[in-house]
Design a protein around this nucleic acid. Structure first.
Length: 316
DNA sequence: ACCGGGCCCCATGTTCTACT
DNA sequence: AGTAGAACATGGGGCCCGGT
């Protein structure tokens, strides 16, 4: 009982911590740590961990699920001072950690990049913060009508699901919501990389993000009609492309691979090339699953040949 | 009981093909 | 007709399991 009292006394601070944290990434553990950091007795915290986690979870859920869902209408992203968070939503991690039995949502939630937990910089009042966050959570919750997080399988996603990244599934708020958050996703993928001389010359810019580079290349391919008519997944390299890829023909899947040596992290001094050795561990799943099976019997020989030479280049 | 390590998944961007 | 999955890069976060 005394624990209850102790935990209860921490509720305001827990709420405050959660409010000032990124709910998409915060965890019960993080909250506990923060409490300790703020001077709470570590032993007491640990002693009442279970209760504490439970309370954290409750507050957390309160924050992410606004009382009235009538506002699920549609909040114009560009209106008001809506935060830059993607509607990602499903601030799930916390609840997961807190209640192990309670399975995660069927989908893994994207990580949202926001200000770091415990941003001690500009301080809003609790109230302001609560309002602001409430708005965010509102939006976040909007797209995810998750029935119940208490059902479902605790098991993490199976491998078989593989990547479901793009999922356009335009049918349903989920798909839409996903699309939005995807766009907002600003991860290392969009990080601008310094291009090698040859690639920079080809693109016309010294640095570009990986996806953008690929896009530019495809633009060029289309403009110049460089796709193999027999199999449009292949790109026929003209002189300019050859100067970059050093091959006459390449599969679109391998384009990224071939681009790797051309990308350099701004922090790095050396190109990240390191042509990867044909590691024996590497499972040939790619080749078997994708390239070969779908090839028409009449093309088999030729295609295999092409791929062979391609791989030869890759691993040379 | 708690902590830490390791594994797995997902994010973007592209196009095409196979399947439903 | 529409959708999912195929490769590929990197980094971070979540979860599970084992060790202390």
């Amino acid at each position: 009982m005394s624990d209850m009292t102790y935990v209860q006394s921490l509720l305001p601070r827990i709420r405050h911590i959660l409010s000032s944290s990124d709910l998409s990434t915060v965890s019960a553990k993080a909250v506990r740590k923060e409490l300790i950091r703020q001077g709470e007795d570590e032993k007491k915290i640990k002693a009442s961990r279970e209760e504490l986690d439970e309370q954290i979870g409750e507050i957390y859920e309160q924050l992410i699920s606004p009382p009235d869902d009538t506002s699920s209408e549609d909040i114009p992203l560009n209106s008001t001072s809506t935060p830059t968070i993607p509607l990602s939503s499903q601030p799930e991690p916390l609840s997961r950690k807190i209640k192990k039995e309670e399975p995660p949502s069927p989908e893994r939630k994207p990580k949202i990049e926001r200000e770091p937990v415990m941003a001690s910089g500009s301080r809003e009042t609790d109230e302001q913060m609560a309002i602001r966050l409430q708005r965010e959570f509102d939006m976040a919750a909007e797209g995810r009508a998750r029935p119940s997080r208490s059902t479902a399988t605790p098991a993490r996603k199976k491998k078989t699901i593989k990547r479901k990244s793009r999922v356009r599934v335009g049918s349903g708020d989920e798909g839409e919501e996903r699309g939005k958050k995807r766009r907002n996703k600003n991860s290392v993928f969009n990080k601008e990389m310094i291009l090698s001389d040859s690639l920079a010359a080809f693109i016309g810019e010294p640095s570009l993000s990986r996806p953008q580079t690929v896009k530019r290349i495809w633009d060029y391919v289309k403009e110049n009609d460089l796709q193999d008519q027999g199999d449009k997944r292949y790109i026929l390299c003209d002189d300019r492309l050859k100067s970059v890829f050093h091959t006459d023909r390449l599969h679109m899947f391998t384009m990224n691979k071939l681009l790797v040596p051309h990308f350099r992290d701004s922090d790095d001094i050396i190109y990240k090339t390191e042509p990867r050795p044909p590691s024996p561990d590497v499972k040939p799943k790619v080749e078997t699953s994708e390239q070969k099976p779908k090839i028409e019997s009449s093309q088999v020989d030729e295609s295999e040949e092409e791929y062979d030479s391609e791989d030869a280049y890759l691993y040379s």
